[in-house]
Design a protein around this nucleic acid. Structure first.
Lengths: 250, 250
DNA sequence: CGGATGCGTACCGGTGAGCGGAACACGGCG
DNA sequence: CGCCGTGTTCCGCTCACCGGTACGCATCCG
């Protein structure tokens, strides 16, 4: 199953059912039927039917014939969710400049659990097809932004990531805890994280953390591009500068 | 009240409560307390407390101290919601070109009920501060994109908008049903809608509908800028062309 | 042509999850 | 000090949710 969710059976709270229903939709799905949703959520088909009816009444789900889609209202609410953080709005111009200057793809991401979530992405004109997606997730230890954030996070956050098993994403993903720790120490010293084909073969990335007043990271920005075209060391100062500028406004 | 919701009391469905809770957050709100949410939703404080607990457990809400924010997961799901439509992804490059060519702000929007929802916005370099916001709403009859969509929609859709009372947004908003109908007829003939300070004094806009195989509009794109700097007639062909290109891919 | 298998949908009685009033702990403010 | 206004806990009642069963309708196949 693409959207491999752990079975939430046992947690019978109504909220859990709603959340499970919304989470059942994965990228790539356009519209799902009642039975498919029942299969993915582990809920009885009847319940899915009723729940989706209710959700549809409030715009959180939409019907396309008999199939179900995520509702437009979710998009609206989702935009408010990031807007509350303010980050995206203030970062936009900075990211745009960075893209202009580097002609590559620029990322803004935050950490959630053991993964990063991309808040904004500006694709470069001659950029590779990266696996990143606005609103998408990626294992933190396998990305530049992730390592930048982790290096400026409390220990227990890093421990949790390591405890997660450092899943291999590409052939070059760092899967050794000791190696990761060593890298993070270096990142912490330089305030710059590099990533070389660890998330996707053929691409590299240079990232820098956005920190708050306490010195802990709240986000990170990065520039990514082709491995043989992008000179990461050369771009590091630009990325670092943008991250610092953003840190000042947070 | 900014987020003037009609009182949903009477609809006691649990889903209604969840939806009301999420809808209680408006743009400009960063974090709300239990009491404030209870006030806005009309729900008992106790219920808000319990519901928000449940939602928090599933990442749909987040706690900042004792206050509540919309959760990051809502952003993720919201992105999937638009992605399912495919529109945004395919439109992006076209919109980028349009911005490049016009140096003004470009909009992509769809109609929902009597309002348009902005799916994507690319701000121009020397653009005015428009009231539009990604994920934001605006009365359809007061915007270029709205009129473009309405002109290519079934009659009952237009009727519903008119029945909504054509609220005045700016000094120049069209509030007369007969005038609106006459304009829409012209828009339908030219496949191009103009808007002159009807949503915001000082700005104008030229829009064109994105239509599906049946000929009905599914979205619209527009270019907006300063009233005294933007020659709408001159930009019309560019907007029209982009809209046609997008229509072909839908 | 059965009939087998998938789908979405409707019916309906039992029951426990959600409900919300009352009461409490805290923390400014006058 | 009392007096707001918070957020939070407790607890018994009840009604809305639950989900097994059943049905109409497609599609596929022997």
């Amino acid at each position: 199953m693409r959207t491999g969710e752990r079975n939430t059976a046992g947690d019978a709270s109504t909220a859990a059912r709603f959340a499970a229903l919304l989470a059942a939709f994965g990228p790539g799905d356009t519209a799902l039927g009642v039975s498919e949703l029942a299969r993915r959520t582990g809920l009885p088909k009847t319940s899915v039917h009723r729940l989706s009816q209710h959700l549809t009444e409030h715009g959180l789900l939409e019907r396309d014939g008999t199939a179900l889609r995520l509702g437009l209202r979710l998009f609206e609410i989702g935009q408010l969710a990031v807007r509350q953080r303010g980050l995206v709005d203030t970062a936009r111009p900075l990211l745009a400049d960075l893209r202009e200057a580097t002609h590559n793809t620029v990322h803004l991401a935050v950490l959630e659990g053991t993964e990063v979530v991309y808040l904004d992405i500006l694709r470069g004109p001659d950029a590779p097809r990266l696996p990143s997606r606005i609103g998408g997730r990626f294992p933190a230890h396998a990305t530049g932004v992730g390592k930048a954030i982790l290096a400026f996070s409390p220990d227990d956050v890093v421990e949790k990531v390591i405890a997660g098993g450092l899943p291999r994403v590409s052939r070059r993903t760092i899967t050794s805890p000791v190696l990761l720790r060593r890298q993070l120490a270096k990142v912490a010293a330089e305030a710059t994280a590099y990533e070389r084909e660890e998330s996707s073969i053929g691409t590299v990335c240079v990232a820098s953390p956005v920190v708050d007043a306490t010195g802990y990271a709240v986000a990170a920005i990065s520039v990514a591009g082709w491995v043989n075209r992008l000179r990461t060391e050369r771009l590091a100062p630009a990325v670092r500068t943008a991250a610092l500028a953003l840190s000042r406004t947070v």
